[in-house]
Amino acid sequence: MTGQMILANRLTDGRVVFLAADGRWVDDIAGGAVATAPGVASQLLATARVAESRNAVIEPCLIDIRQVAGHRQPVAWREAIRATGPTVRTDLPA
């Protein structure tokens, strides 16, 4: 399954968050809403822009995702790193 999700940075701590179906922002990509139809994607983006204007998040953007081994993964390498964290320093606690 491919689709689109909204990714942003949360204002207070800058952490990467995903827009969920109920309008909340969640840390885990698995909890975010996936749009598979163009109309839904633009609705998500509109919701995100409202959150941006209310200063909940910064620079929300629509990203393409796909399923890899049963998990959602951003198609673009940059966004994949944003979704899962740095590929280095995994030795240190989050």
Binding site: L11, D13, R54, N55
Partner: peptide, 28 residues
């Protein structure tokens, strides 16, 4: 002022940068 919504990100960004604070891929 930023947290209360008094400043937009566009207005705040140069002020935080002058104090060394960037927004990177994962966090500030």
């Amino acid at each position: 002022r930023r947290l209360s919504g008094d400043l937009t990100e566009d207005q705040f960004k140069p002020l935080r940068l002058m104090n060394g604070l960037y927004l990177q891929l994962h966090a500030y």
